[in-house]
Design a protein around this nucleic acid. Sequence first.
RNA 1: GCGCCCGUAGCUCAAUGGAUAGAGCAACGGCCUUCUAAGCCGUUGGUUGCAGGUUCGAUUCCUGCCGGGCGUACCA
Length: 577
Amino acid sequence: MKYALATLLQDTVSALVAQGRLPAGLPAPEIARPRQEGHGDFSTNFALTAAKAAGRPPRVLAEELKAALGASALIERIEIAGPGFLNVFVAESAFHDIVRTILREREDYGRLTARPGKILLEFVSANPNGPLHVGHGRGAAYGDSLGRLLTWAGYDVEREYYVNDAGRQMDILALSVWLRYMEVGGEKIAFPETGYRGSYVADIARALRKSVGCDLQHPVADILVANPDLDADALMDTWIARLKGTLGARYRTVHGFGLDAMQADIKDDLAAFGVRYDRWYSERSLVESGGVDRALALLRASGDLYEEGGAWWFRATRYGDEKDRVVVRENGVATYFASDIAYHLEKCERGFTTLIDIWGADHHGYVPRVKGALAALGQDPGRLQVLLVQFAILYRGGQRAQMSTRSGEFVTLRELRAEVGNDAARFFYVLRKSEQHMDFDLDLAKSQSNDNPVYYVQYAHARVCSVFRQLDERGLARPDLASADLTRLDAPEERVLERTLGRFAEVIEEAARDREPHQIAYYLRDLAGDLHAYYNAQAFLSVDAPLRDARLALIAAARQVLANGLALLGVSAPESM
RNA sequence: GCGCCCGUAGCUCAAUGGAUAGAGCAACGGCCUUCUAAGCCGUUGGUUGCAGGUUCGAUUCCUGCCGGGCGUACCA
């Protein structure tokens, strides 16, 4: 609807220019939804923005434009208001057309026409060294909804999870699992501060013990050798090296056991949360296929690498980063950054025109170096769009809850889902725009989940379902909604509801453009509110048959849009509550 | 210190550079013998952190302060 009007306006202006009644080089006409109801369904400020270039006062220009827009089936009337706004009132028949279109297209209503370009959407990608916590949950809910949104907006989208199964963090998990394994075997150990101390590690260790018995047995004292000259991280590296040396090929068993257990847990958790992926991309496969070496070789060939202090550095400062970055450490081990360079190069080579990465805000300093690496590799860094999700700050009992994977003191996503429910959790997460810091009050979300706005929206859907159940119970015939006489709809609540329905396609378009699924959530709340108000003001069943059919057609359309919108957020649309 | 994000009603948050800054919760007052009261209607509540600048017009863009968060690794 907005698009049709924008086209009409553009054509009208072009025609005036062609006739010489307006000069060329005017600003592009724009059309907007006025905030104020009395200002029409759409308004344009073109007379204001173009007045100077056109050489006449805004109100005069507005009159000319109004006359030139002439008669369109879409437009009921045009008013000139304020300093020169053109307020357009859309014909009722146009809204009736939308209701009929919704009823015809059903669960596909709101899908926009396909557009060119392939998008790779990477999100969550949490290290498989512990269960997902509520911070990851925000990225999961946001990423999954964004994926659905982009798909609906006509993009070709693939969703990917980058599995960091090759790095140092996984070695630390392996060591942690092995230590717990020895503990299960009866050995008393002083568990290191720098290891993963969550109880899930012991669970994995017990399963490992059950699987391999005593095969991995070795005195812990031989591994956890103290060295006061080293800091905690360097010390951890020596322990990992000792464990690898001691266990030899069997190290892979421990490493793989921890990885597989965590990976399975994460996959299961996300699937239960309604989050879907097209691909789980293994960092290790990238290393083993030589992808990392190849990327580094390319950078070396282009003169973007140099050696200093025994380490290899990427000249990130050449590409706008504030300092150069290590890709191969002094001990010969590639950094996470090195494989990430290879990964992003590989994404480009797979033919994606747009790469969207969703990262936690704590990684924001990482953006310039990745874009820099792409530029160094001859790729357009503009293809990479990094969306940063701010932290969800947890409050429990009015106090901030601690979040630390190492210590194991965190609220897991699984706990949140169990206590709040998937629907409430997903809606709650996506109700804030991603760059907004978010206060997540666990007590409120858990104990007073009735306050969660998700129920408000779901209830609106269930209410319509209930009306149709009543229709059957009263023995009234199910009408042919498509042929209902919608001109019977003239109550104020009906006009409001029809107008809100007419916004759905625009909301999808704009939410996808801005990567802001929260716009969908707010729209749904508006739509639910309009429906609830309508429900309380008008009777649907106890009216004459033609009016009843018209009203049923309208609320059926509203129910459909509610369901489609909730689907975009991964939230269910219950038929009763 | 430098970089990024944020600052809007008592609280949690919205608002493509537009007209009188909006919701929810909280507070107060109404509405169930009628399709689900997880609802509706109404009232109260604001110097959009502060000060400048750009603009016909600024919560929005720019600059400088103030306050909070996060970065600033040969961790990820």
